[in-house]
Amino acid sequence: MSIKQDLRQLLKPYYLFNILLSLSYIAFKRLPVLCNYFFQTDQCEFEGRETEILFFLIIVVMIRTRKAGSVSMISYLSSSFIYTKIANLILWFNADILMGIVYGIIFIFVAFIFPEPTYSGADQVVYFRGAENLEEELQKDKQVTWLVTFYAVWNPACVNFAPIFSKLSNEYGLENLKFGKIDIGRHPEAAKKYQVNDSSFSKQLPTVVLFKEAKEVMRRPIPDGKKSFVKFPFSEESIKNVFGLNCLYDEAKNQSKTKRRLKAD
């Protein structure tokens, strides 16, 4: 996503309200007029406990966004909002219980009224209902190449990757080059069969697997020699380059042409 697209995305209510909620305590505590009125003090400085909470928040956001594989400004913001808002909730309750309750009500209200925007363009993603459904589809026509994402709806990295995968399916999808997704939170047997760790500490979410002739030929992320997983940036360009989508697309197109020509003969 370009900088212009990022800025356009930031104008959507979800991002505007969440940025305001994330910066609310800092703004109210540091701006003299607001500080004097709400905190009844002329000392508009952070106290020791407040500084500790904010410092801890910075560390948590940095770690979690790196684990989420965030690669753009929007991704970083989306990954960090929940942590910044919880930190603000703690700070507001620490300052005044009533203000903490008011902030909590606004927090919940915004979450329900302004959900995170999702990719609204066309896509060609097939959603599988478990491991058996995926296996049936793979065996149905072994000439079809499948790129399948194993994901969980609660995982920030999966949420960030969803619009990218949808966009790629729309750009590269053909009758013999298809894109699929399977929610391993709802279908844990698929996670077990395809060896994808679905725990909350998993470094395998999302996992993208390429199937050719009904067999797995490549996946990301992949384990290193120490039973850990090599971090993979789930960006549009990374998926295109690592899985060779341009080559797969050309192969699939040529295969379709040959098939039509043979039928005509």
Rank of each mutant, 00 (worst) to 15 (best):
K140M: 10
Y119M: 01
F107W: 15
M62L: 02
I113W: 05
S78W: 04
S75V: 01
T65L: 01
L91I: 11
L98T: 15
E116Q: 10
Y76W: 10
T65A: 02
G130W: 14
L91W: 08
E135Q: 13
W92E: 03
G100H: 13
I108W: 09
G121F: 01
E136K: 14
I106D: 00
E116K: 06
L89F: 11
S70C: 07
S72E: 07
G104L: 14
S78F: 05
T118D: 03
S72Y: 02
V60Y: 01
L138Q: 14
R66I: 10
E137C: 06
I86Y: 10
V61S: 00
E136I: 12
F114T: 06
S75M: 03
F128I: 13
F112M: 07
L134W: 12
L77V: 05
I59G: 03
S75E: 12
L77Q: 07
N88K: 11
I106S: 06
E132D: 14
L91K: 06
A95M: 11
F81Q: 01
L91Y: 08
F128E: 12
E116R: 07
F112P: 02
S70D: 05
V60C: 02
I101Y: 09
D96T: 07
G100R: 06
S70F: 05
I90Q: 06
L98I: 15
Y127E: 15
P115C: 08
V126G: 03
S79C: 06
A111V: 04
L138S: 09
A87Q: 09
A131F: 08
T84V: 11
I106L: 04
Q139A: 14
Y127K: 15
I90Y: 13
R64F: 07
I101R: 09
S78P: 02
A68I: 10
F112R: 05
F81P: 03
L89C: 10
T118Q: 07
F128S: 11
Y119H: 02
Y83V: 10
R66P: 00
E116D: 02
L89T: 13
S75R: 04
M62C: 01
I108A: 12
I97A: 14
I106T: 09
G104K: 12
G121V: 01
I74H: 03
A131V: 13
F109D: 04
N133P: 11
E135P: 07
V61H: 00
R129Y: 12
M99K: 09
A95T: 08
V71F: 02
M73Q: 04
L138T: 15
M73S: 07
T65G: 00
G104C: 11
I59W: 02
S120V: 01
A87S: 14
V61A: 02
I58H: 01
L77P: 07
E137D: 12
T118A: 05
K140E: 15
I113F: 05
A87P: 09
M99N: 10
R66W: 14
V60I: 15
E137H: 08
F81T: 07
K85V: 15
Y119W: 02
L77F: 08
I82N: 04
W92T: 08
V102D: 01
I58Y: 06
I105W: 08
I86L: 14
L77I: 09
I108V: 13
E136F: 08
M73T: 11
L98P: 04
